[in-house]
């Protein structure tokens, strides 16, 4: 499971141009320097990296908290759920 955390942190650090060592699952997404297109890019990278599909509409992201996205851990949970779902599906 730690490779999920690691993969998410890598991708977010890259998009936010943040020092990877300063990020943790508890980091607030709003504290990072990411605009709405960056968030869409993060989800694209996650889908490519983990071979999953993430249902995410940027119209919910005008207020990311409204889409249940507050911290990096919320992103990790989405990836976990999708990975579990994909396994169930196969």
């Amino acid at each position: 499971m730690s490779d999920i955390v690691g993969g998410v942190l890598d991708i977010i650090a890259d998009k936010a141009k943040a020092d990877r060592s300063t990020l943790s699952p508890q980091t607030e997404l709003s504290s990072l320097n990411m605009d709405s297109l960056d968030i869409v890019e993060v989800f694209f990278q996650l889908e490519e990296h983990f071979s999953i599909s993430i249902p995410y509409n940027a119209n919910d992201a005008a207020d990311p908290a409204g889409a249940g996205l507050n911290t990096i851990n919320d992103v990790i949970e989405i990836v976990r759920r999708q990975l579990a779902g994909d396994r169930e599906a196969t």
């Binding site: 995410y56 509409n57 940027a58 119209n59």
Partner: peptide, 20 residues
């Protein structure tokens, strides 16, 4: 689709439940 701004249901301009 990749921009993630298409509405899945219909177009609801100015309505609070709009999805794109």
């Amino acid at each position: 689709e990749a921009m993630r701004i298409l509405a899945p249901d219909t177009c609801r301009p100015f309505s609070r439940n709009r999805k794109g």
